[in-house]
Amino acid sequence: MRLTTKGRYAVTAMLDLALHGGKGPVSLADISARQDISLSYLEQLFAQLRRNDLVTSVRGPGGGYRLSRALERTFVAQIIDAVNETVDATGCGGTRDCQQGEACLTHHLWEDLSLEIHAFLGRISLAELVARRDVKAVSARQDRRADVVSARQL
């Protein structure tokens, strides 16, 4: 399966936003610090997420980003699609150019797997991820680490 860092980072950043958005807009700098994702990379991702109406930006002091939809209506596959990513299990990038310009013997099997993976991710909402105990534990650890780093900078 081929899912690049672009898709994984987009999902990670959106989950961070879902976890921390209850207190108001979340800055990309905060997401960057907690998730160790480059701020400039997040800016590019969030431009695509905004164009696809998954987030809205809030300007001014205390500004940042908010989710555009309820957690229950935001699905992992939508996030991946918004940043122009694909989940591709074929060896040819889905082009059917596996063997000298033609599909290989198992191309359709891997293509079907790609569709199944996309459908699976299309059933997982941010609400489900936010509710997971393991996600909450990792988020709490990241928040503690970010607090320590922030205290050192003062």
Rank of each mutant, 00 (worst) to 15 (best):
R144N: 11
K6L: 01
G22A: 08
S38G: 08
R133D: 07
L19H: 05
S57W: 08
S38M: 05
V58N: 06
V130L: 02
L126C: 07
E102T: 11
G63M: 13
A70D: 15
T95I: 00
H118D: 14
R8L: 06
G7M: 00
L105V: 05
T12N: 11
N52S: 15
R141C: 07
S57D: 12
R132V: 00
V58M: 09
S40T: 11
Q44K: 03
T86A: 05
G64F: 10
L113S: 06
V11K: 01
G122S: 12
E128H: 10
D97Q: 10
R8K: 12
V58L: 12
Q78E: 15
L129Q: 05
D112L: 13
Y41V: 07
Y65C: 01
G91Y: 02
L115S: 15
D30L: 12
R96Q: 12
V87C: 04
W110K: 01
L71T: 04
A146E: 14
L45K: 04
L67G: 13
L49G: 11
Q35K: 09
V26A: 07
A18D: 08
L15I: 11
N52K: 14
V83P: 02
A13W: 01
G7Q: 00
D36R: 14
G21R: 13
G60V: 08
A140C: 09
R50H: 06
L45V: 06
S150M: 11
G24H: 09
Y65I: 01
L109K: 06
G94S: 15
T95M: 02
D134A: 05
M1E: 08
A103S: 11
L71W: 03
G91E: 06
T74H: 05
A18W: 08
A140L: 15
D143Y: 06
H118I: 12
Q99C: 10
G93Q: 01
R96M: 13
D16L: 08
R50G: 02
R96P: 03
T12G: 04
N52Q: 15
V138A: 13
L121Q: 05
D134K: 01
E116D: 15
R69C: 03
R152K: 12
Y9N: 00
R2M: 08
A70C: 09
N84L: 13
C98A: 07
P61F: 09
V76I: 13
T56E: 15
L129C: 05
A33M: 14
E85A: 15
L105T: 04
